[in-house]
Amino acid sequence: MTVLVPTSLDEAIAGLAANGGATLLAGGTDLMVEVNEGHRHFPWPDDGATIIALHRVPELATWTYDVPAATVVLGAGVTWATIEQPPLRDLVPALAEAARTVGSPQIRNAGTVGGNLATCSPAGDGLPVLAALDADVTLLSAGGRRTMPVRDFMLGVKRTALQPGELIESITVPVLQGWQGYSKVGVRNAMVIATASACVATDVPSRSIRIALGSVAPTVVRCPVAEQFAVERVDWDALTVDAGDAVEFGRLAAAASRPIDDHRSSAEYRRHAVAVMAQRLLQRAFPGGER
């Protein structure tokens, strides 16, 4: 048997320990595209490699709200369809907004937040949100558990810190107190890969503003200069921002991007788009200022 379908986390870990080179399969929405295109060949006709399908591991498919810690712990197998709806939508609205832009309803029923991280595409819709929210990812293997910031987990285009024998167990997402939102440009009004994307998240008590950009660099980009600028310019009592400052915020965010030209768009447009999105997101976060 070369396809394992574990029904518990222990079983999954044991299977992974016994098959060091196993391919992990979550929702299949990335991996199966490669299989169908012939880009990923399974052994043929003899057996030998192992696929571990994770969709029936209940521990991975659940999430919890840790109220004292003010975090949501998402099992890696939580689907976008779940994230898109209440109650998660109310706890992490920006992630829910990103979820609503992932593929089609069919894709959102299958695709998972853990799979999004594991694939680590520059255009992964959930990734800017996780980066902006300073989420952590917990990796599990027979040897134990380790946790790291999502931003450290993402190493490059489709490269992550996941080691052989490890799986993504969960993602811990802080629940902030302040406006947060996601924006994504694509040439179609649904079912489209991000040409460029941005997430702005705010935490009013800590006077924190974060912005992360997608599809404009090998991995998600945070923009500390823009963030610092916004923190200083926002009127934290009135929760407003001047229009001119919002424009500057967009310019600073775009300056942190490192986009490329490809068949989907040009670097120039991507840089322009993240500036506009960043500006608009900041104005949504602090709507009182003059437009």
């Binding site: 396809v3 595209v33 169908n36 894709i107 029923n109």
Partner: peptide, 26 residues
């Protein structure tokens, strides 16, 4: 073959999915 058209939609475990993106043996 990429989950971009929906023609292969079926219900698996009560969820509408693209059957082209489901590994059959799983």
């Amino acid at each position: 073959e990429q989950g971009e058209c929906g023609s292969c939609s079926v219900l698996v475990g009560g969820n509408l999915v693209c059957s082209c993106l489901v590994l059959a043996a799983s």
